[in-house]
Design a protein around this nucleic acid. Structure first.
Lengths: 357, 357
DNA sequence: CTGAAAGCGCTTACAG
DNA sequence: CTGAAAGCGCTTACAG
């Protein structure tokens, strides 16, 4: 029937009020007489009116929202992908008059992150996105952010903090999946060494727990020889240490079949395995150029990819919608998609923002 | 420096012309004197001006673009997902004044599809999205569409047709991946029966070819006992026949370890396997409710999911951008993402439009 | 070839 | 509590 989409003008005409009043009803910015309220609501219903978001965006532009973002910047393809997600979100929100202010720490420096948050607050942001460098500090993060500034976490949760919501992978289940993948590539023998960065990261612990739990429950032939906590404070140190630790493990255990690396250090572990020339397969995480090469050569069996660009893009958009009141928070944790990547699925994998326009 | 995003007004002011002239330059709708052209170009460059797409959308709204879409509607969750992708695209394009007109055939009826195309053309569409029911008919599709109406194909290509571009999975590689997955779940013995709808669908053929090629090249223990072409003309027939054929195969071959089903009929095959109580595992495609249940119970080992909602959403948006001149066609085929789904990755899978906002 | 003006659908002061 | 008016940044007839 009503072929053309109806507008706020139509609603105003039908209910016999001005468009300003309709707008008040729409966003309950209050003080509308009961009769008019009722009439407007009825008209909205009758015309099944839905506000034009584009028009809204254009005029709301003037409000000049600021969103702050802080994350630990790592100089590799994972960092590049995060940058791509941020850039995409920035461009998408630009015409809405949103200013996205980005700060980052180099490596996992917690005091730096607290400083970056202060700096963002000083610049007058209306909300924050935080990719925490360290999740044991929920309290201190809470303390650095005023109550009236909402913040959301990405990738790594800040459990027990005042965060509005968290967006990231389900690390325990990811650990379980990793164990399953390892078992699929094994025959009778399945001796595994786990390499994880030594950190208080909850995500890492969850992955290890998930892995071990799955092995115990369902994979009788799997034997976890060792769980190595890599020392380090920076990505460079981790990179060095994972390489050396891998070689060391190979020397100490004569019977390793698999390494499971709980994060993007997968590449350097695979480098060491390649160097050793042992028939060992590596399983791990993320999807950088180096990991792709090891997948192609068969040293890495499979990797679980958490699509960082999409997580950031999604988090930024979500916070924006929350700030302008277009979205309510219904659940505190949103689990994001992860992909299983193996040699044969390389042709289908989209990195960065992929096909998402 | 230039903190605020510059606007068309700024460009006009800087180059000493009217905004109408800037607009002419922007979209080269011609007839601008060389001097002014140069001045405008310089100003655009100097201000690094980027048009506000939101504002553009709002005014371009009046042009009232129509996009037509036709696809074979199947009454299952796959069809529901397609509907979700279409709905999301429709809502996204609504404020741009785009009317998305959707027609569908029931099942794979080619004459019906030709009729639906005619009907869409009669309604004055400016471009078409076609999910072909049958790819042997590129010529007849070409003939039903005037040269000035661009069309793109989704999911199944119309090779040799005049389509502007194709958006869909890489079916040969998908077949290869399927063979790899089967081999991962096998131990020493790996006897496989392939079930495929009897149709002229090129996608199906590609998947089978990929599967066989991979098996031959890299999986010596794999033995393909039979490739069954299922008779049928409608989804209901296929559903019935795949069930019966599965039971028949189980009777005829005493040693089947795996079924590979080239499409969403996976569910009915798994039903029959469950019924037979044989220790046979099914591999297949898509991700409907029924398939999820079989993954949970372990009858289906893994499924490869082509995310139909996203393919449609993407195709519609792409055609829109092409029609308004915001995007050029650079490559004729766009390969979309596919996910490997196994029991352990169920927690991460987003169906429909997932987290894509 | 060029510019002034109206308009897309909404929001936001402002005045009453 | 309510409405008229200006404005967001662009496009599109229209007049010159």
């Amino acid at each position: 029937m009503a072929n053309q989409q109806s507008t706020i003008k139509d609603v105003a005409a039908l209910s016999g009020v001005s468009i300003a009043t309709v707008d008040r009803v729409l966003h309950n910015r209050g003080r509308v007489s009961p009769e008019k309220l009722k009439a407007v609501l009825a008209a909205i219903d009758q015309l099944s009116y839905r506000p034009n978001q584009i028009a809204r965006a254009l005029s709301v532009r003037k409000s000049n929202l600021k969103i702050g973002l802080t994350y630990p910047k790592i100089e590799d393809d994972f960092g590049v992908e995060i940058g791509e997600g941020i850039e995409a979100a920035k461009n998408k929100l630009l015409p809405f008059g949103v200013e996205l202010i980005v700060e980052h720490t180099y490596d996992y420096n917690f005091p730096d992150q607290v400083n970056s948050i202060k700096s963002l607050l000083n610049q007058g942001v209306n909300g924050l996105i935080i990719n925490p460098v360290n999740d044991s500090s929920s309290q201190r993060i809470d303390q650095s952010i005023p109550n009236n500034i909402p913040f959301v976490t990405v990738i790594e949760d800040l459990i027990g903090s005042r965060r509005l919501l968290h967006i990231g992978p389900d690390d325990f289940r990811i650990g379980e999946l990793a164990a399953k993948l390892v078992s699929l590539y094994s025959n009778d023998r399945c001796n595994v060494v786990i390499l994880a960065p030594h950190s208080t990261s909850n995500g890492t612990q969850q992955r290890i727990s998930g892995f071990l739990s799955k092995a115990k429950k369902e994979i009788p032939q799997m034997n976890v020889l060792q769980v190595c906590a890599l020392p380090g404070d920076s990505e460079a140190e981790y990179d060095r240490n994972v390489y050396e630790m891998t070689l060391e493990c190979i020397q100490n255990h004569s019977s390793i079949d698999f390494f499971y690396v709980t994060n993007g250090l997968t590449k350097r572990c695979a480098d060491a395995v390649t160097e050793s020339e042992k028939p060992i397969m590596v399983f791990g995480h993320e999807f950088t150029k180096g990991i792709r090469e090891h997948l192609e050569s068969g040293v890495v069996g499979a990797t679980i990819y958490q699509k960082p660009a999409q997580q950031f893009y999604y988090a930024i958009n979500l916070l924006f919608e929350i700030l302008i009141g277009d979205r309510k928070v219904t659940k505190p944790v949103i689990v994001t998609e992860c992909s299983i990547i193996m040699k044969e699925s390389l042709p289908f994998i989209k990195v960065g923002m992929g096909n998402l326009i």
